[in-house]
Design a binder for these strands. Structure first.
Lengths: 264, 264
DNA sequence: GTCATGAATTCCGTTATGCGGAACTGATAA
DNA sequence: TTATCAGTTCCGCATAACGGAATTCATGAC
């Protein structure tokens, strides 16, 4: 009689949906959030009060917004693997040497997440794009990662997210992608020729540990600038050197770091 | 009969406690988390499943860990006010000029949160300390902020967090702190002489907007190096110049930024 | 091969608890 | 004064979150 469908907790989902709404729209009033999510105001109030009590949400008069406690959580996620931290200086160096945007991307839940982003020019604001999520099939970093995953895992990911077209050249056919990944595996380098955004090219190499890709280093820029030998050879060589150095530090030494009076 | 005590949601609290546990201990098994929080394994399982479904938790075989979705949330929190972003280059410049650790700290829920941290020497790993939470009464940045808050708000914060001693010189007396804040307000500069950690000095200036402190710029370092004119005059002058420049940009222009194919 | 162990997952009855509607409060303005 | 609007509190109900028990699954000992 009673449908025992999903084994998940509704209240938790609702709370995170509220958090997500705050992430999307910025400071908002209770009534706006309730309307947005089609919840009763009393319910919304209870969730916001709970989140506020735990310091995951702040309020300024009538407006609620994300609590800065998420900054800590975000850092913890970003450094959950010591190897993630070691890539930062390589990303900086790549941005410096190429003058283009350099990135370090890892896979989580079948999506690519930008963990480090640096731009060659100083004009662009720092840290912009960190945490951003992209599909793996349409980016050089994503293809570099997928190329070194077992086929079953690749299929799982494609089943989950599909192969939506983002630009004219996006690979939207599964077989075609398999072939592309084969090529990437052979060359050790992935390219993105206007597959993600029209007018934007990119190239990436995997960073491996124990034979498994833990992420990818990538460089992206306007297709008129990223072309020829520069795109095909020179940039990949810089990235390969960086990836190689990272992989040699096989131990990826981790240190706990000192902690003084931290409030939890 | 039925006690209607706290108007908060238990399930949400439990879910966030699990997230917090993962932040603290890193990758963990279900049974470890259940034991740590004294929850039934079936309950823990349901929460983890829910969090995993929403991509806020990842699992690698038998171990659960924070999902990288928190990286995005953390960035969103860190940039919830456009003014927060504009301080980064000043923090970098201060670290460069002083050769010491420079920080930008804001208040949330009565605590100080480090939003930007840069060190003069390149040896130290980047971003370390971002998101960290400290008591306001025992740091130069905290005192710079409190000095420009109305008395009632200061009392609220002290009621909530007390004045715990962290080092030999920590101010633990309310009246004494009031006087100190008065001095800070007059001078426009706050000092921390081994009040937070023995052997560590610091100095800070508030960054104000519409007369209200939105945060503080701070420089900290070993007490033997941070002393005399250097600590009392020169560093504060650099910080004041930076704060002044920030405050002149009263508009704090915000731009939405382009978004390409972002997966939510 | 069987049996023991330990962890994760599923099942299930109970009842606490999360829910929305309604009532109430408080601020602002007409 | 009354009207309006947002936020908060109250309250009864039915659901869904809970923990204990049973089951599955993997691993290792003998």
């Amino acid at each position: 009689m009673v449908e025992r469908n999903e084994e998940t907790i509704q209240a938790t989902k609702t709370s995170f949906e509220i958090v997500h709404t705050l992430q999307e729209v910025g400071p908002a009033r209770l009534s706006e959030i309730a309307a947005e999510l089609e919840l009763a105001e009393s319910t919304t109030h209870r969730h916001l009060q709970t989140l506020h009590d735990m310091r995951y949400v702040s309020r300024d008069g009538e407006r609620y917004q994300l609590g800065l406690r998420f900054a800590r959580l975000g850092r913890a996620a970003q450094t959950r693997d010591p190897a993630y931290e070691m890539t930062q200086r390589h990303v900086e160096a790549l941005a410096e040497e190429t003058g283009e945007r350099a990135q370090f991307v890892v896979e989580d839940h079948g999506l690519g997440i930008y963990l480090h982003v640096e731009t060659g020019s100083q004009a662009v604001r720092v840290g912009f794009g960190v945490g951003r999520q992209i599909h793996l099939h349409s980016s050089s970093a994503g293809k570099a990662i997928l190329a070194h995953y077992p086929r079953e895992r690749v299929d799982e990911i494609l089943d989950q997210w599909g192969l939506p077209a983002h630009a004219a050249n996006t690979i939207t056919d599964r077989e075609e992608l398999y072939e592309e990944l084969e090529t990437v595996r052979e060359r050790g380098v992935a390219f993105n020729r206007e597959e993600h955004v029209d007018g934007l090219n990119g190239t990436a190499v995997p960073v491996k540990r124990d034979g498994r890709a833990i992420g990818a280093l990538a460089v992206a820029g306007p297709s008129h600038r990223l072309t020829g030998e520069w795109l095909d050879e020179e940039i990949p060589n810089m990235m390969l050197a960086a990836a190689n150095e990272l992989e040699l530090n096989a131990t990826y030494a981790s240190d706990a770091g000192s902690r003084d009076h931290i409030v939890e």
